[in-house]
Amino acid sequence: MAKVIVVTSGKGGVGKTTTSASVASGLAQRGKKTVVIDFDIGLRNLDLILGCERRVVYDFVNVIQKEASLKQALIRDKHCDTLSILPASQTRDKEALTREGVGEVLEELKQTFDYIVCDSPAGIERGAVMALYYADEALVVTNPEVSSVRDSDRILGILSAKSKRAEEGQETPIKEHLLVTRYSPKRASLGEMLSITDVQELLGIPLVGVIPESESVLQASNAGVPVIHDQTSPSGQAYQDVVARLLGESRPMRFLEEEKKGFLSRLFGT
């Protein structure tokens, strides 16, 4: 049975699209047939991060409005042939996302794919609610700072009240995962950032991973290659761990401590 995972946060700029691209790529790398959908109608970003912006012909809204078939709109990822992308429309209004329309598209995708990753827009408007409505699991992306934690808390409230599982009173609610991104152990130890324990305590949901702040994320985004493909960067490795945990593997948390500098680098200050 196909699983629908929403990547959401409430707040913008915390790393939802980066996470969607990397987690979807990671699942596909592990042989799962995966599709990632951009719900951020009007602000297409996911196709840029996945490096397929020039191949977009039809989009999610075209499919909902039956102007194109899914087959026409889906874009095959260039790194991984088990990954497909359903891009957002840049010209349409987000009102085009109807509950029935989204539901129909997801049902159709479930016939072919194992994992459906929904990249939610920021905020708590229609796009965000539609992205989480049909979810089975939720990746709540949070930066270690108070406003991001507050917005994540808000979105968790919406998950538990406005999702399909909540509305229908289904026995198993949406499975919630906390993903802390842009974490800097050094700044947390100096008290400039909330610690992982603080964030976890405030939100009260299980931690699925910590992505350390890293330049490689920005570089990867600009290059249109999800950071998970960069096996040398801590961020890429951390995303690999997240995907493994989502698939049920147990892995210890990494990158929580400040990297100890070696004797020589300490001596020469590099």
Binding site: D151, D153, R154, L156, G157, S160, L202, G204
Partner: peptide, 26 residues
């Protein structure tokens, strides 16, 4: 369940017992 930012719970005509966190903004 935890009561999260933006949520409101009203116990009409009686007491309210909460067994999980009441977060900021709730």
């Amino acid at each position: 369940q935890p009561i999260r930012s933006g949520q409101q719970i009203y116990a009409r005509g009686g007491d309210l017992i909460v067994l999980a966190a009441v977060n900021a903004g709730a």
